[in-house]
Design a protein around this nucleic acid. Structure first.
Lengths: 160, 160
DNA sequence: GGAAACCACCTCTAAATTGCAACCAGTCTG
DNA sequence: CAGACTGGTTGCAATTTAGAGGTGGTTTCC
């Protein structure tokens, strides 16, 4: 039972996912384009997260209402992690973090593309992306614009 | 020499201040209304930061170009920490974090006011706040609108 | 039907970080 | 010149992290 350090909303947000890995895990699920299993999250994470850290964060994030744990109908043992509305509501935060990183750090050109698309698209694209995530993770209707597709094509264009 | 985990802008941002205390320290200097000294930051921090942690974070943030260390002309020993442009550029991030905290955590009513004012004011008020911070910390001209004054009066109104 | 691959973690260990309380030397104030 | 104030530092215990390897069960392939 960890009592809260203070009732400041910024502090409470920080207490929820203000460590070096939680947002990385959320980012991977968010931009991964589908709900994800443990192995795929572990293998495809570019920062090389350790399996015990990943297990711990998935547990915490699920406990804090940011992730859902679902069964895979085709595999009794497999667990599928999906985003909740609370996590989807982090899209603006991730977008703003990406923008700051673009301006004040030296990101690799290919990995910067996603952040650049979100910055250029602005709040309107963020909303479309959130709709898309509700479609993917919560079963809502598919939106007209696919932010993920925009990022994909921007990435493909940059490589060519 | 810690080499970076990846070139993703979100990750790089996280590596810069993605721990439980860095943003708390920045928040205190940002909303404190003036450049701040060590003792004042230590004594007025509501989360009860420890002095060694504060010293470490001030060192790191200064090293990362987010804070400036200035002398106090009236006290040879005193050091005044101020924000750099890089840190002032975090206003949107803090605002968005505050908004998320308002919606998804249970902040105390008085401490939520600041976040609420920033949310209601939107990007336009954020810009005014950033101008104000440039005035306070970088010696730029004073802006017409004072976001800090808005927060103050909203706070006063809420108490009455 | 047996082997190999895949599944979500768990265990162990060492290293790093955190939190706490006490302490310090120089500086200004009454 | 005593006491309060300055920005820290030191030592220590507890927690967290990182890395390597292992576990028990499931599904797939031949």
């Amino acid at each position: 039972m960890n009592r809260r350090r203070s009732g400041c909303p910024i502090n409470l947000t920080l207490e929820t996912f203000g460590d070096r890995w939680s947002l990385i895990v959320l980012r991977d699920i968010m931009f991964g384009g589908r709900p994800r299993g443990f192995r795929s999250l572990l293998a495809e994470n570019i920062e090389g997260i350790a399996s015990n850290i990943l297990a711990d964060r998935l547990k915490r994030l699920t406990g804090n209402g940011l992730l859902t744990r679902g069964d895979d109908p085709g595999h009794k043992q497999k667990i599928i992690y999906g985003l909740t509305e609370k996590a989807i509501d982090l899209v603006p935060l991730l977008a703003v973090m990406g923008s700051w990183g673009l301006r004040h750090t030296l990101p690799s050109t290919t990995l910067a593309i996603r952040a650049q698309v979100l910055e250029d698209g602005g709040p309107q694209l963020w909303s479309a992306f959130m709709e898309e995530l509700r479609h993917i993770h919560l079963g809502a209707a598919a939106p007209e614009i696919s932010a993920l597709a925009k990022m994909q094509s921007a990435y493909a264009a940059a490589i060519a």
